[in-house]
């Protein structure tokens, strides 16, 4: 009797583990199937075609792909130094008594739903951007900055975790040799935690590129490759959020799935790089 239950439990557990695999495979398969008409019609030209004119049944993904990549890239440029700064502050500079509360606060901020960042961006930040940079306040740069603020806590928290893996003894001995804090950071902490830090940053990138709600409020929603940073743009998630429920022709619907497939593949690759190349060490360490 026990044996049957034992086997049953194992089978159930294994099936649940399998489920994750099945879902991932199903997502790929469904995205591909739904995207197939658009792939057959446009082929790889879809990636470079800049015209998105649903009334003419012309669909080019270039503006959305461009917007996704550039807004994420800009957000990374803004967020990375600040996140590393926060992480250094939290590991090496802050008083012991401050480390935990500030660290916890940042972790909590990472949990705030992204749509709240988007609402704040629309009502409070976009008008400021309009004052500072001209234009209409909504556009690529605004989206990138809101995005960078949104990923900042997540990035700072995991970067700090990576830095914290540096053994105390290494740091202590360096200080004993007369090293300054910067020496320790530069010569001990960063070399030791380098892979983890890079991995964390790429992981944050993976989250940024798939983000919908923080940017859809402030990006401007147009299928054009912007000429200036303050120009409005679009990204793949923004396009899906705006147009998915109303794509009334088959090709339109399929083109949106083509975009979804591209986004999924990009984020798949990004995360795979972060996980398997840079974060291997931290995993085997567990």
């Amino acid at each position: 009797m026990h044996k049957v239950v034992d086997k049953g439990f194992e089978a159930l557990a294994k099936l649940s583990a399998f489920f994750v695999l099945i879902v991932l495979a199903a997502i790929f398969w469904v995205l591909f199937k739904e995207a197939e008409p658009a792939i057959e019609t446009f082929g790889l030209e879809f990636l470079t075609n800049q015209k998105w004119a649903p009334n003419l049944e012309i669909f080019g993904g270039a503006p959305a792909i461009f917007g996704s990549i550039v807004s994420t890239f800009l957000a990374m440029i803004i967020a990375t130094p600040i996140a590393i700064g926060i992480a250094i502050f939290l590991t090496e500079i802050a008083f012991e008594k401050l480390k935990t509360p500030i660290g916890t606060a940042i972790e909590m901020l990472a949990a705030i739903p992204s749509i709240i960042y988007g609402m704040w961006g629309l009502f409070y930040f976009a008008p400021l951007m309009r004052e500072w940079f001209g234009g209409n306040g909504l556009g690529l740069l605004t989206a990138a900055i809101v995005l960078s603020i949104m990923i900042l806590p997540f990035m700072a928290a995991i970067t700090r975790d990576s830095m914290n893996t540096t053994p105390h003894i290494l740091k202590e001995s360096a200080y004993a040799l007369g090293a300054t804090k910067w020496d320790v950071i530069k010569d001990v902490v960063i070399p030791y935690a380098k892979a983890g830090i890079i991995g964390s940053i790429i992981l944050a990138l993976g989250r940024a590129i798939g983000e919908t709600m923080a940017v859809t409020f402030v990006m401007g929603n147009v299928h054009r490759i912007p000429k200036e940073l303050t120009d409005p743009a679009t990204s793949i998630p923004v396009t899906l959020a705006n147009e998915f429920t109303e794509a009334d022709s088959d090709l339109y619907y399929s083109s949106l799935f083509y975009l979804a497939l591209i986004l999924f593949v990009i984020s798949f690759i990004v995360i795979a790089i972060a996980k398997f190349y840079f974060l291997k060490k931290s995993r085997s360490a567990k």
Partner: peptide, 20 residues
Amino acid sequence: FIRDISDIMMSAPSIVIGAF
């Protein structure tokens, strides 16, 4: 393998999951 896959799923774009 399952661990790797679930790491990837953890960061999958949520809007794509909606479309799926």
